[in-house]
Design a protein around this nucleic acid. Structure first.
Lengths: 234, 234
DNA sequence: TCAATAGTGTCTGTTAGACATTATGGA
DNA sequence: TCCATAATGTCTAACAGACACTATTGA
């Protein structure tokens, strides 16, 4: 078996064309929006693009993602997570063989100052895009939904002090479903994630809401038994 | 801001050196083992390596990972999941700028036939390796533990028919902790993942165990409220 | 006073985990 | 017979989700 000994021999690195593709998400009008750029050339095959670029020499991919965010928004994202590397046949706007993709979360405030040609689009109403960019956006939303209960992503979208209703709204947006108010607050208490500060905020009509701040205490003990939720049917 | 308009202009792809690195895991002696290769050159900086290679022209990274597995084991892995792309400063044995890494699961049977220079090593007792390979192995175990309850990874490590005790042992191995027998079986029943076949297997002393086969029915409804387990402390 | 939102108390069905018990083979 | 393993029944504490209720403001 010649194939098998080849592997033990010293492999040699090889070059390929690579891009860093960035999915910036922000809460907007009660739903999640992704930042898309309009192609400079109107005759371009793909009218709408994710921000992307080739990493510069010696530049790690996550640094390239941050640079992309600064380029379109002027600020780095409040949270940045790698999605995956996509290198299948699906077409990339720059025909990169490999796409290292990231998802960045952006709070609502600074999100409005974008460069020309950049628009926030509801993730449920995407326009026609390059096939690879399309799957990257879908994967980005999946990544956020899977990691939200294991990293403080939601808090990065809020100012230092916030009401529990605001926090719940962010969770509902990122998870894509509504949560039960009392259960949400009980779970929060049990997790020792937030603590109340001595301030209240009155917003229009109802009773003023107490403000909280993110103050994670030591993590709780082990999670319990195996849950077989959401098993994919292979 | 000149920086900002640069992004809207058409980026150009650029080449960089890339590798595909593969973490093959198998159950062995009651713990998880990873396949390492001994460096061909004994004066090499890194004595122990993960199987890796540059992807061939036009070859998707996952295909390169399967090719690597065939090279060292003669067979493709029973399950393959992408870990991530690592492109930070940590040193790679081939000095690749970017590592697209995969974790493959291999059942115990065929796992013994390895090429010369390939050994199975307990993941808890890793030898000195290149820094990037070290973080890739750690990330591989994390990926398996996070995806095991959302994809049928455990079943890929078992023959078509198996006892529930064998299945539980695989879960315990992959999760790295012991599970409660009655709860495990209840969860299994509730998930409609397996069905009994009309066979029993007697193994040594005790009562013979009924054999089961993997037969996932339609997935269950939504999972319930937010769980704040295992929140990382930022 | 009403409307609207914040926040809490209580009940119920589900279930994880503990424990005990039965079942069934081999030594 | 004793022992080891399989498999199941029962109890309890924890908890998600539902519902109702109180609290507190602006209109």
């Amino acid at each position: 078996m010649r194939e098998r000994s080849l592997v033990v021999a010293r492999p040699a690195v090889r070059s390929l064309t690579a891009a860093v593709d960035l999915v910036l998400l922000t809460p907007r009008d009660g739903s999640l929006a992704v930042l898309l750029l309009k192609a400079a050339d109107p005759r371009a095959r793909d009218r709408w693009l994710l921000p992307w670029d080739a990493p510069r020499p010696e530049e790690p991919p996550d640094q390239a993602a941050i640079r992309l965010s600064r380029g379109v928004l002027g600020v780095p994202p409040a949270a940045l997570e790698q999605i995956a590397a996509f290198g299948d046949g699906r077409r990339h706007p720059g025909d990169a063989q490999l796409s290292v993709s990231f998802v960045g979360l952006v709070p609502h405030g600074p999100a409005s100052h974008t460069t020309d040609g950049a628009v926030w689009v509801d993730v449920e109403q995407l326009p026609l895009m390059a096939p690879r960019h399309r799957v990257i956006v879908d994967a980005a939303v999946d990544v956020v939904r899977k990691r939200i209960d294991q990293s403080p992503l939601a808090f990065r979208l809020l100012p230092p002090s916030f009401t529990l209703s605001e926090l719940q709204a962010i969770y509902e947006l990122l998870l894509g479903r509504s949560l039960h108010k009392a259960s949400f607050r009980r779970a929060l208490q049990a997790a020792f994630l937030v603590e109340p500060i001595d301030e209240w905020r009155s917003e229009g009509r109802g009773r003023p809401a107490q403000l909280y701040r993110y103050a994670p205490k030591r993590r709780r003990g082990m999670r319990r038994g195996v849950r077989f939720d959401l098993i994919s049917s292979d």
